[in-house]
């Protein structure tokens, strides 16, 4: 994976596969503490302790199409390379929370990448059935996008409509510039 926005897309796809109807994506960039935190929290079917213990093994997967499961192990590796930390908490029937921490200015820390496109792709493909909450904090500035609220505002117009997606994309970029994630 070239950047963290692609890792996030990959982990969120896991949440969708797990039947999640609400997925939170939280990014905290704290330059003072020299730390970057990613958190993906879902209300999917969750995992038992035995499964959680195995998910970082790249040769473990619950999928039938192939024999490897690289998504979580690659994100854990990316955190490790940037002297960070990786944690996964899950409860069967309740959901899963994946947290990855990175030393912000570490030379091997992957760039955040194009979060606007990751969010738009998720809304376009699954936004009708899944609610996404995207919170992005940078130092003291932050913004939140909540598709449940947006759907209410749209009053029946599909959130995956091409024109709606275009406006959302422009607004996410504008907000990321406001909180100085994008320059």
């Amino acid at each position: 994976m070239q950047d963290l926005s692609l890792h996030i897309l990959d982990i969120v796809e896991n949440s969708i596969d797990a039947g999640a109807k609400k997925i939170e994506i939280i990014i905290k960039e704290n330059i003072k503490q020299n730390m970057l935190v990613l958190k993906i929290k879902d209300n999917g079917k969750g995992m038992d302790k035995n499964t959680v213990a195995k998910v970082l093994d790249p040769f473990y997967t619950t999928k039938k199409t192939r024999r490897v499961g690289l998504g979580l192990s690659m994100l854990a590796q990316a955190a490790k390379e940037a002297e960070g930390d990786f944690n996964i908490k899950s409860k069967k029937g309740k959901g899963t929370t994946v947290t990855a921490k990175f030393v912000y200015d570490h030379i091997d820390r992957k760039p955040i990448g194009n979060m606007a496109e990751t969010i738009i792709v998720l809304i376009a493909s699954k936004g009708m059935n899944v609610d996404f909450i995207y919170k992005h904090h940078k130092n003291s500035k932050s913004f939140v996008l909540d598709t449940k609220i947006l759907k209410k505002e749209l009053n029946g117009v599909p959130i995956n409509n091409a024109e709606v997606l275009n406006i959302l994309r422009e607004n996410i970029i504008k907000e990321l510039k406001r909180i100085e994630v994008l320059t």
Binding site: S142, I149, E153, I167, E175
Partner: peptide, 11 residues
């Protein structure tokens, strides 16, 4: 925290 509110959506 500022919530994304998009006036254009109404339009």
């Amino acid at each position: 925290m500022k919530k994304l509110k998009i006036g254009d959506l109404e339009k």
